[in-house]
Design a protein around this nucleic acid. Structure first.
Length: 249
DNA sequence: TCATTAAATGCAT
DNA sequence: ATGCATTTAATGA
């Protein structure tokens, strides 16, 4: 993953942008529909935004005027709940869309987004996206599948939050991170604080720490500071299997 | 290495 | 069981 950064650099043109042709994000909806999208000139309308680690690029309540795709990096999407508690909605990586929920009829973002590491974003304006969707049914269909999947995921999350125990929710979070971001020499390839695990699992930081300690004793996970290693994926899956809930992504 | 920040544990409600 | 306070460990300048 890190190796793509210099690769991207070499592909930048004089204006500092990377052509979609040279992009390596095979799961990107734009990349997958390049042949038809380039006719409308859509891909020429993108701009590129760079975010340092920890930088917030979508503010809750700000007006929507476009859509982000992650060119390279990792992002957390959250919304602020009652008494300022942060609820992490999802984590996103290369090729994924950010800010799509505010896109349709919503005028303002209902979520915020922060870069978890240095991240490059592709940005498309609302106008150019809308005309692309009208002109290109393949692209629209792909977007519709994406929305359907997102809805499915979000409904599953409601279920997990309301019916699973704290421990199960933490285990579920670990499995989610594991299947989405994978591991690099034994540790999850995503730098998260216990607070962030808690915000995703819908608990407190202390609870996460306590569950982590228990899992460590049971040798189901390993922890070296911020680095968390999932040692026994199968056993962890088994713990939450009765909730028959592990759809991909 | 030291200072800052995060994690782990302990304690009281 | 939950949240707060203290101690201990990790991280970065």
């Amino acid at each position: 993953m890190q190796a793509t950064a210099p690769y991207l650099k070499s592909k930048r043109n004089l204006s500092g942008k990377i052509s979609c042709h040279d992009c390596t994000n095979t799961k990107c909806l734009v990349k997958n529909n390049l042949s038809s999208l380039e006719v409308s000139g859509f891909i020429n309308n993108k701009s590129e935004i760079f975010c340092k680690k920890g930088q917030q690029f979508i503010i809750e309540g700000a007006p929507v005027n476009g859509l982000f795709f992650i060119l390279q990096g990792k992002v957390k999407v959250f919304r602020t709940g009652i008494n300022g508690k942060e609820q992490i909605v999802r984590f996103a990586k290369n090729g994924e869309i950010i800010g799509h929920r505010g896109f349709g009829t919503e005028e303002y973002y209902s979520i915020g987004a922060i870069a978890l590491e240095d991240t490059s974003l592709c940005y498309f304006s609302k106008d150019s996206l809308q005309s692309a969707l009208r002109e290109n049914s393949d692209f629209t269909y792909a977007m519709m599948l994406f929305y359907a999947n997102e809805l499915n995921r979000s409904e599953s999350k409601v279920k997990s939050l309301s019916q699973m125990t704290v421990r199960e929710r933490v285990v579920d979070t670990l499995l989610y991170i594991n299947r989405k971001f994978g591991s690099v020499n034994g540790f999850l390839d995503l730098p998260l604080s216990r607070k962030e695990y808690a915000d995703y699992a819908g608990t407190s930081e202390e609870q996460v720490i306590r569950v982590f300690s228990a899992l460590k004793k049971e040798e189901l996970i390993a922890a070296k500071g911020k680095k968390i290693g999932v040692q026994d994926v199968e056993l962890l899956k088994k713990e939450i299997s009765e909730h028959n809930y592990f759809l991909d992504s």
